[in-house]
Amino acid sequence: MSVNFEVHAAGGFLHHPAAQSPIFSETAYSGTDPDALSEILSTSTSPIKVAAQANASIAYCCNFVSAGDLAIADCAYEGAISLRREAPSGKVIIFLPVEGDAVFNAGQEPIHSVPGRGAILGAGRATGARLLGRRRHLGLFVDQARINAHLTHMFERMITGDADFHPHIDLTAGAGLLLQQLVTNLHRGLGGGGLLQESPLAVSALCDATVYLLLENFPHRYSNELTLPAPAPAPRHVKWAIDFMHAHIAEPISLNEIATAAKVSIRSLQQGFRQFRNTTPIAYLHEIRMVAARRDLLESGAKQAVADIALRWGFTHLGRFAAEYRKRFGELPSQTLKR
């Protein structure tokens, strides 16, 4: 197996829409060993087991490029290959086939993926796949947390959990064809030291456009709600409360202090957050602190301990923090720190 690796630093990770310039990376692999392919496709939180069906020979050539928390793979395979995912990935994965047939297990019915017909596999839904002979596809990998950040921005309330995309995509026309073209151009522009690496702001905008294209054109849990008229903007006291939380995010502030800063009673503050943010003030504060902790874990490069980062953002019980973090992001804080 031959391996080539190159990394180009260009800013911090994207932790919310259009926040910062992304870090670029590229990795290429080729070989014939199923166990090596297992290692290539696995992550620390979501191992994948690859096997050659009937012990036949296989071959593969994969190129991965990433921009922050969005990655694109261009993979070609030879032979009959089975793959089994042994733990949820925490990512929404979109397969855009160029050649050949594949069958994904992601629910009650198998999902066939051939040229002209793509597949969206929700975070934690895909359990396995079979590649039937010669196969090539582009794969788009998007953190569920990034999708939720975009939905949160669109709805102006906290969104968590799986978006539950419908798994089938028509790639022959309309938004499906546009998605395939956009992902193809992103991969070409980022791979091999492409010119897009010299335009990090353009890459950020294109990555955001890709996620919004998914959310606005392919059916998911929130599609119907997106077609409704936008709700009335949040009242001033809710915005004041949110501004106060962000200004004092690492301090031990109380609900009473938040209400005082918002110039309303605690009851009015709670009603405002329930109506306009679909949550409570304390839950909102907890969420933005959790996102801040994840950003520090991603950017630390193992230079800081998980406990130090947790304490910085007000999480004093390390075991509870780890459990809530895993529920929120699909991996333990220590696993994020090792990326």
Rank of each mutant, 00 (worst) to 15 (best):
residue 185 N to M: 07
residue 270 Q to W: 15
residue 283 A to I: 01
residue 200 P to G: 09
residue 276 F to V: 06
residue 169 I to W: 12
residue 228 L to A: 05
residue 271 Q to W: 03
residue 223 S to T: 13
residue 265 S to P: 08
residue 175 A to K: 08
residue 212 Y to H: 15
residue 273 F to L: 00
residue 268 S to D: 11
residue 183 V to K: 10
residue 161 G to C: 01
residue 208 D to I: 09
residue 213 L to N: 07
residue 217 N to Y: 07
residue 268 S to I: 00
residue 243 D to C: 01
residue 282 I to M: 15
residue 218 F to C: 11
residue 237 H to P: 00
residue 219 P to Y: 10
residue 259 A to Y: 12
residue 290 M to Y: 06
residue 184 T to Q: 13
residue 164 D to E: 15
residue 238 V to P: 03
residue 285 L to P: 04
residue 251 E to G: 03
residue 254 S to T: 12
residue 257 E to D: 03
residue 265 S to F: 07
residue 230 A to K: 10
residue 241 A to T: 03
residue 286 H to Y: 13
residue 169 I to H: 15
residue 211 V to Q: 07
residue 185 N to Q: 12
residue 243 D to W: 11
residue 266 I to R: 13
residue 265 S to K: 04
residue 230 A to Q: 12
residue 176 G to D: 09
residue 277 R to I: 02
residue 195 L to A: 11
residue 233 P to R: 10
residue 254 S to L: 03
residue 216 E to C: 06
residue 216 E to L: 08
residue 251 E to D: 01
residue 240 W to T: 03
residue 292 A to H: 00
residue 282 I to T: 05
residue 238 V to M: 01
residue 185 N to K: 13
residue 204 S to G: 04
residue 258 I to C: 06
residue 278 N to A: 07
residue 236 R to I: 07
residue 175 A to Q: 06
residue 189 G to L: 15
residue 257 E to I: 07
residue 258 I to G: 00
residue 188 R to Q: 13
residue 182 L to C: 10
residue 286 H to I: 00
residue 217 N to I: 11
residue 235 P to E: 04
residue 190 L to I: 11
residue 196 L to H: 14
residue 163 A to T: 11
residue 190 L to T: 12
residue 207 C to D: 06
residue 209 A to S: 09
residue 174 G to T: 04
residue 160 T to Q: 10
residue 226 L to T: 10
residue 256 N to M: 03
residue 265 S to Q: 06
residue 255 L to P: 00
residue 217 N to K: 09
residue 276 F to K: 01
residue 284 Y to T: 02
residue 285 L to D: 05
residue 263 K to Y: 08
residue 228 L to Q: 06
residue 270 Q to R: 04
residue 208 D to T: 12
residue 236 R to L: 11
residue 162 D to A: 03
residue 226 L to F: 08
residue 203 V to Y: 15
residue 282 I to H: 05
residue 221 R to T: 01
residue 169 I to K: 09
residue 225 E to D: 11
residue 198 E to L: 14
residue 222 Y to L: 07
residue 288 I to W: 02
residue 194 G to V: 08
residue 174 G to R: 13
residue 220 H to I: 05
residue 263 K to G: 02
residue 279 T to H: 02
residue 194 G to I: 14
residue 280 T to D: 01
residue 196 L to C: 04
residue 269 L to I: 07
residue 206 L to E: 08
residue 239 K to L: 05
residue 173 A to K: 10
residue 171 L to C: 08
residue 288 I to Q: 05
residue 161 G to E: 00
residue 175 A to P: 14
residue 167 P to H: 09
residue 199 S to Q: 12
residue 254 S to R: 12
residue 279 T to P: 02
residue 192 G to E: 09
residue 201 L to A: 13
residue 295 R to Y: 02
residue 196 L to I: 15
residue 188 R to T: 15
residue 219 P to S: 13
residue 175 A to M: 04
residue 189 G to C: 07
residue 231 P to F: 04
residue 218 F to M: 13
residue 212 Y to D: 13
residue 251 E to L: 12
residue 256 N to H: 06
residue 258 I to Q: 03
residue 164 D to V: 14
residue 295 R to A: 00
residue 187 H to R: 06
residue 172 T to G: 11
residue 276 F to N: 04
residue 290 M to S: 05
residue 214 L to H: 14
residue 169 I to R: 09
residue 172 T to F: 02
residue 276 F to L: 00
residue 166 H to R: 15
residue 216 E to R: 08
residue 231 P to Q: 02
residue 258 I to W: 07
residue 235 P to F: 10
residue 231 P to D: 01
residue 208 D to Y: 12
